[in-house]
Amino acid sequence: MTELFAVLAVLLALIGGIATVVIKNPFDKLITLGILVSGAVIFMVSRGYLDVAIVVSLMMPIGTLFILLLCRKKPEGLQ
């Protein structure tokens, strides 16, 4: 059963990584990055690295906020 979780986690991470490379819209990239991180966290938990999984789970929302700040539209005068 744990092998099934590991395979599913690797598939999620690969699909998220490939989709992140392919998609050009920065807001859609956030969704694919979430898929990638979810696969990575499941893989870490299945291997017993709970402390690393907790840190990644706490850092991902902070990284998402920074990415959203970088993607926001700039006023017309500053372009």
Rank of each mutant, 00 (worst) to 15 (best):
N25S: 10
N25W: 11
P26T: 13
F27W: 08
D28V: 09
D28E: 05
D28F: 13
D28I: 12
K29H: 02
K29T: 15
K29Y: 13
K29F: 08
K29E: 14
L30R: 03
T32H: 06
T32W: 02
L33G: 09
L33F: 13
G34Q: 08
G34H: 05
G34D: 01
I35D: 01
L36P: 08
L36W: 06
L36S: 10
V37N: 00
V37W: 08
V37F: 06
V37Y: 08
G39Q: 02
V41A: 10
V41W: 04
V41T: 09
I42F: 10
I42T: 11
I42Q: 11
I42V: 13
F43W: 00
F43P: 01
V45N: 02
V45A: 13
R47I: 09
G48V: 09
L50W: 10
D51P: 06
D51R: 11
D51N: 14
V52T: 05
V52K: 09
V52A: 05
A53Y: 11
V55T: 15
V56D: 05
V56Y: 01
V56M: 11
S57C: 07
S57F: 01
M59Q: 04
M60I: 09
P61M: 03
P61H: 04
G63F: 09
G63L: 14
T64I: 11
T64H: 05
T64K: 00
T64E: 03
L65D: 08
L65P: 00
L65Q: 12
L65I: 15
L65S: 11
F66Y: 07
L68A: 12
L68E: 13
L68V: 13
L69T: 02
L70E: 15
L70I: 08
L70A: 13
C71R: 12
R72M: 15
R72T: 15
K74W: 02
K74S: 14
P75A: 05
P75G: 01
E76H: 12
E76A: 11
G77I: 04
L78Y: 04
L78R: 00
